Amino acid sequence: MSPASASAEKTERLLNLILALKSARRPVSKQKIRESLPAYAQASSVEAFDRMFERDKDELREMGIPITTTVIDVLFDDEVGYRIDASETALPAISFEPDEMAALALAARAWSTASISGAASAGLRKLRLSGVEIDESVAAGAEPRIRTKEPAFEAVHAAVSALQPITFDYRRNDGELTTRHVQPWALKNWHGRWYLTGYDVDRRGERAFRLSRFEGPVGRRGRAGSYAVPTDHVPEVALEAAQPEPEGTAVVRVRHGRGHTLRRHAQRTTELNESWAEIELPYRRGTTDRDVVALGTHAIAVSPPELVDAVRSALLAVAQAHERVDAEPVGAEPVGARPATEPTRTGEQA
């Protein structure tokens, strides 16, 4: 018998035992249990049945299912019966405070990806069926959104949920395109980007992958449920370890209300005026410049020179692609230069 078949057979046997003991009005003897349940009736001997039943009984108790033992006949104290008290295993009525229901409604509306929004809606339906009234009007006016614009998101999310190995083409930091074979462990939104953590089969180790660097379709390789996620796996720890060492400190000016990804890494923030702030953060080539470029006119690269040059080059490439080449690209300024709209430092003359 295959491991999967043996596991399914054991699960069915435990479930049947739970149902039999919960539905019984009075304690059931061991002999009656053996006669009633086919899995036990097929035991090769009384000793085999006893071992199987004792293991199952202990496993159910470890799962938190209380099996009570009662003497059936006071004249024969060695004749015991077993039963599961339904009141001991029933869950209490589900109830939520108004603010908790509002949070549930907001959470269900937050996901903009079809696969996740379907699961969120199903969760709300189950709560309603159990008698929980959810007034979604309490969240009126709020439109939270968790965006998942990466094309690979749904396929990766499905693989993580199913514990199914995948393969995909991945663009590394140096631009090289490689094919990866991975056992996906977790999907995590970290500092504004989606990452996959998992076991890289070819490299024989834990790795982290940014979903925006996936190229082409994600393929499934292998059976669902063919591996287990390590119990000590913490996605944040893996992602922190995967970050390249900073090459120094970058100085960037950002408009108020913008640049949250940059601000999360800030080591120092100086408010310049009512519109601009200057932040210092670890400089990582290829990452910091992309974050600045993505902000367009809402950020100005100040230093180091290689950051300024990288931002300027990227914006020039965009301008050339749109046939709108300007002498002064928007969003990046030479070191020491100050645009007409640049913020004035605190204490300086305007």
Rank of each mutant, 00 (worst) to 15 (best):
S36E: 14
K57P: 02
A39R: 13
I18A: 08
N16I: 01
G219D: 12
P244C: 02
P98D: 15
S226D: 04
G347K: 09
H157C: 13
R34N: 11
V252T: 01
L17M: 05
K149S: 15
A114V: 13
A120Y: 04
T249K: 08
T270Q: 12
L211N: 00
Y82M: 13
R284Q: 06
S23G: 08
L163P: 06
P230K: 04
G336V: 04
G64M: 03
V234F: 02
V318A: 12
D78Q: 15
D73T: 10
A6R: 13
H181C: 06
S23V: 05
P92V: 13
R312G: 05
F96N: 02
Q42P: 05
E323M: 11
K10I: 02
V74D: 15
R220Y: 10
F168T: 01
E9N: 11
E348L: 10
A162S: 13
A140T: 11
A155Y: 11
F96C: 05
R345V: 06
G216P: 06
S87N: 15
R284V: 08
G259P: 00
V71D: 09
D50G: 10
R338T: 09
E9T: 10
R147P: 07
V46Q: 15
D85K: 09
S7L: 08
A250M: 01
Y227G: 01
V293A: 03
S212Y: 02
D202S: 13
L281W: 03
E206D: 11
H265Y: 07
E97W: 14
H191D: 10
T148P: 01
R290D: 05
I67C: 02
G286Q: 06
H181G: 02
G131P: 01
T69I: 14
D77F: 09
V201C: 10
L307P: 01
P184F: 00
D174G: 05
D200N: 07
G296V: 04
H181T: 07
R204E: 13
R193K: 12
P66S: 07
S36T: 15
L17G: 00
R147I: 14
T344P: 06
L106K: 08
I279K: 00
L211P: 00
P244D: 03
A238G: 02
V74C: 06
V138K: 08
T89A: 09
P38L: 11
I300L: 09
I18H: 04
G336L: 04
